[in-house]
Design a protein around this nucleic acid. Structure first.
Lengths: 126, 126
DNA sequence: TCATCTGTATCATGTATATAATACAATTAT
DNA sequence: ATAATTGTATTATATACATGATACAGATGA
């Protein structure tokens, strides 16, 4: 479990983003246990309070569920999970299109560039 | 001159992003005068110090140039301008690909979705 | 049983950001 | 000439975030 934090965004948001990504990709399955606050804080070298903040927000967004004194678990609600994926894709496309807009370039010109960049990325992933 | 600020990112960064976008799109031309710190602060309803911070950073990045007691002007250095555009496109593609990665979707499936979204956006632009 | 783990909560401190209130020298416009 | 505008600079205050140090009740494992 490794996360490379940037210095700009709040850490608790980056932690949330990290877990959302794991859920979206299917690497974290519905019902699966989350690492404990203290354990994750230790692994990521951050403060337990910061992890708690991230978990609290995910709890509010119904992405995880916690019973008293028990480890948190990924939600099994298919509606929540489906919506997460839809929002993820929608967000990615909106951001991309908005960024591209000011450049004088068409989608047709863009596709080969994207293909190229996706290939080189595959290698990096290992 | 209108900017819709989000509450998450520092305002001075959003101001910088706003002007970079104008330069990349060609709406702001090399050598053109920037609005004065006070005037822009008034229009955007933000503090002059925040504008000053944004301008200072853009000056450091050589995007604008300021002579003493004169309005700042967009750089005319073609190298700086070209690099800005290249970085802008590279950044957009990298962010997009990274966001798409966890989703199980190919570029072929994506292109029609992007086309659709770009159309609806054109309308919104006015 | 008892030590250890769980989630939850509070308080103090430091840093980055945004705002507000000024100030000053040099240029520009009237 | 002189009033207004330019960029630049400083100081103080408020807020969000991250950290550190604790604390407590309930569940778990040896």
């Amino acid at each position: 479990m490794t996360v490379s934090f940037n210095k700009r965004d709040p850490i608790y948001l980056q932690v949330m983003h990290y877990f959302k990504r794991l859920i979206v990709s299917g690497e974290l399955l519905p019902g699966e246990e989350m690492p404990s606050r203290r354990q994750l804080a230790n692994e990521l070298k951050i403060n337990p309070n910061t992890v708690q903040r991230a978990y609290s927000e995910m709890e509010e967004q119904r992405l995880i569920h916690t019973e008293p004194n028990r480890p948190s678990r990924i939600t099994e609600d298919p509606v929540v999970l489906e919506q997460l994926k839809n929002e993820w894709l929608k967000q990615a496309m909106t951001t991309f299109i908005s960024a591209i807009q000011p450049l004088d370039i068409s989608l047709n010109e863009l596709v080969p560039l994207l293909e190229e960049k996706m290939k080189t990325r595959k290698k990096d992933d290992k």
